[in-house]
């Protein structure tokens, strides 16, 4: 738990609450469509591939690849991490992509490459909120 977290916090809505509740238990979940099989993120009450509302929460492995990234140096009023830090687009092994932070690595383009394998790290930033962050596989 970090008492010093001053970064932006999400506020769940009815369709996203199960996602955020699972993160508090250190579980990453995505939704899968019972009709067309699409796995997707972010949480919705309909499948973005076919509009079905027959959806099931499924556990994700927490492993994936760094699809794209930026290294933020300036211009953020309330940064979630000390500047500079890496904001990542992670492609989960299950298919969907999500935005996250990449930690446990130098915030330097020389140390980063698209498609490098990453795995989840659960960051309990407040008593109520756990954020999914990622780190390169095999480092800590």
């Amino acid at each position: 738990m970090s008492d010093s977290y001053r970064g932006p916090l999400p506020k769940p809505t009815p369709e996203t609450a199960p996602y955020w509740e699972a993160l508090r238990r250190h579980e990453l979940r995505v939704q899968r469509c019972d009709d067309c099989g699409e796995a997707f993120f972010y949480p919705r009450n309909v499948c973005p591939a076919c509009l079905s509302d027959r959806l099931t929460w499924v556990p994700a492995s927490g492993r994936g690849r760094l699809h794209s990234f930026t290294i933020v140096h300036a211009g953020i009023a309330t940064p979630p991490l000390p500047l500079p830090y890496v904001v990542a687009i992670v492609e989960l092994d299950e298919g969907p992509r999500l935005m996250s932070n990449l930690v446990g690595v130098d915030p330097d383009p020389e140390a980063l490459s698209c498609d490098m394998p990453v795995e989840i790290e659960f960051a309990d930033v407040t008593d109520e909120v756990t954020l999914p962050r990622f780190r390169p596989v095999g480092e800590c």
Partner: peptide, 28 residues
Amino acid sequence: ARQSPMGQFEMPFGVGGPATRYTFAATR
């Protein structure tokens, strides 16, 4: 808004205005 998709699934990771977000297309 903190309840919007952007407020929930992007803002907590420290993206600001367009300058931090258009980067992802450039990097890829």
